[in-house]
């Protein structure tokens, strides 16, 4: 694994909001096709770390590499705009609050990026949207509007929207945290399917069980640093750090 270039490579990520250090020099990498779960208490910096991968958060120092390309390059204004837009097209992000576009139908939500950014024509874009929707099990909702969908359905559409751009990686920011419990499974199912297709994924989550099932490696973060990392087996059954143990105790005993 060491000779092959990692898909995502974060080196020395640091970020502070004034006096508050949110990321204290994090290094981590994700190999192609690998699935990483990031767990930890609120305020640990895990969301910030995830969002710095597609530059929704800017690092104070450190580097983020996507498949050999430096994401957070220092470029002059317009050049940076062009660069970051290009890079972002290669990454898919799924948000806790879905962020579907309410004024567009499900089909348009999925088709708008391929159509406007990649010049895909209307007919092909609709076909693409249908394919994506079939993947997430919502083909019949193609012309519905987001307001009429349940939370689980909205999130699945959001996943389809991200997938339509054929990204190299998928980033999940607490994708099921805002869902009613009975709607969580349908989303997890889609994520498991993606995992089985060897999509490179970074999943920030509160769901330990799901993380254990799906992830190749788990990172435990607290207070802006990675406290421990390992395979799900290693981390969940034999945590090395006391901090990890305390955290897991709270969750697994629930």
């Amino acid at each position: 694994m060491n000779e092959v270039r990692p898909m995502i490579d974060v080196r020395g990520a640091r970020k502070a909001y004034g006096p508050l250090e949110v990321l204290k020099g994090i290094d981590f990498s994700v190999a192609r096709g690998q699935i990483i779960a990031v767990i930890g208490p609120s305020g640990s910096g895990k969301s910030t770390l995830l969002r710095s991968i597609n530059h929704l958060e800017t690092l104070d120092s450190g580097e983020v590499w996507l498949d050999g390309v430096l994401v957070n390059q220092r470029l002059p204004g317009r050049a940076f705009e062009r660069h970051i837009n290009q890079v972002r097209q290669q990454m898919g992000m799924v948000f806790q609050h879905f962020n579907l576009f309410p004024h567009l139908s499900v089909c348009d939500n999925i088709a708008i990026a391929p159509a406007k950014l990649k010049g895909v024509d209307k007919v092909s874009a609709r076909k693409l949207a249908l394919t994506m929707l079939e993947k997430v099990g919502l083909a019949d909702k193609i012309d519905a509007f987001p307001a009429r969908l349940s939370g689980g359905q909205k999130q699945r559409v959001a996943i389809a929207r991200a997938l339509a751009m054929q990204p190299k990686v998928m980033l999940f920011d607490e994708a099921t945290s805002a869902l009613d419990p009975e709607l969580v499974d349908e989303v997890n199912l889609v994520m498991k399917q993606l995992a089985s297709e060897h999509m490179t994924m970074v999943i920030v989550t509160h769901e330990m069980r799901f993380a254990a099932e799906v992830a190749d490696r788990v990172l435990f973060m607290a207070d802006g640093t990675v406290i421990e990392e390992g395979t799900p087996d290693e981390l969940f059954t034999q945590p090395k750090q006391e901090r990890t143990r305390t955290f897991l105790r709270k969750f697994l005993s629930a």
Partner: peptide, 29 residues
């Protein structure tokens, strides 16, 4: 909602396109 901008930007839409296709249509409605 800020999330709308974030979603559009993370799909790769630039600042101007985000305004044109996502933000302004919603604001007008």
């Amino acid at each position: 909602d800020r999330g709308q901008t974030e979603a559009a930007r993370s799909l790769g839409f630039g600042r101007h396109r985000t305004l044109a296709y996502i933000i302004v249509p919603q604001a007008v409605r």
